[in-house]
Nucleic acid binder design. Structure first.
Ligand SMILES: [Mn+2]
Ligand SMILES: [Mn+2]
Ligand SMILES: [Zn+2]
Ligand SMILES: [Zn+2]
Lengths: 151, 151
DNA sequence: GAACTTTTAGATATTATTTGCAATAAGATG
DNA sequence: CATCTTATTGCAAATAATATCTAAAAGTTC
């Protein structure tokens, strides 16, 4: 897991016969500049880019979110119900995990290097090339424990 | 995280004014008897029950998979692309995590109690009531590293 | 810059999941 | 046990996230 510059991303794309495009660079830059703790969905990213005056079509966004996740540049998160969210994939000092309330989707990020190390070790032991390692904790937050909401 | 008997599930449903039904008991039994390492999707569960002569409608299955996940009886996994999979949620000696190849979806289960403990501790520290704790490792398996597949 | 290949935008298709509703049945109450 | 209330079911229809198709545009190579 490494942090990518546009140049590094371009190099890695070229290794596989692929191309760097303005859209890919825009997406990379956007994720690198978005506030810490933000997890964008495809739709949200599309809206954000539209507002910022550099629109990219939704299908291109979908294609590249998947591509960049599979390259290890982004991490794909299934936090809330029904749609995937993405954030930049960063190495150790910034790497983190997620604790999510299954009722209200309130999410807490937390760091735990020993968990990351355990994940990296497991991948290595099995000969897998690590892309992302995320501890996902599903739970009920204090507020929702008090409420009488359906499940 | 506890293993549920039908009676325990019934008791917990009643606490919230809900009911135990034959369908819910069938789903619970099915997950408790399915082979270790099997992760069923809603559709697959529906087919399996049809074959076994106790069919349950797909919408009921969807409703109950969600309910039982939010009760902590099942765990909801996003392993492959495009659909959720479920397995019974078991405590420590059987509890495990998943290492997944993002290209071919080959999945390895592994145990790591210290990761589970770290997750439980984090939930507790934040006042969250723990339902499930899963380390998800996205990686590329040895076979796929050798192939020239797209991404 | 010509030839070749990948990528894009936009429209359309796909499909997992949810929802509305009438019928059914769980569980409570007397 | 008979009755009553209301949660739950099955089926059909709706929804929404994501994938795919195609022609046009833009990187790459020579
Ligand atoms: Mn995060
Ligand atoms: Mn498993
Ligand atoms: Zn909550
Ligand atoms: Zn693989």
């Amino acid at each position: 897991m490494v942090s990518y510059t546009p140049a590094a991303m371009k190099a890695e794309l070229h290794e596989r016969g692929w191309r760097m495009t303005p859209q890919r660079e825009t997406i990379l830059n956007t994720f690198q500049n978005v506030a810490k703790g933000e997890h964008l969905s495809a739709e949200e990213l599309c809206e954000l880019l539209k507002e910022e005056g550099e629109p990219i079509s939704l299908s291109t966004i979908y294609r590249n979110l998947k591509l960049m996740s599979r390259m290890g540049i982004l991490r794909e998160l299934e936090l809330a119900e029904g749609q995937k969210r993405y954030e930049i994939n960063q190495p150790s000092p910034h790497h983190h995990h997620h604790l999510i309330c299954v009722r209200c989707n309130k999410t807490i990020e937390f760091k735990n290097d020993s968990v990351l190390k355990a994940g990296a070790k497991m991948a290595d032991k099995s000969g897998y090339h690590l892309l992302d390692c995320q501890l996902l904790i599903h739970a009920v937050c204090p507020a929702c424990q008090r409420s009488i909401m359906p499940v």
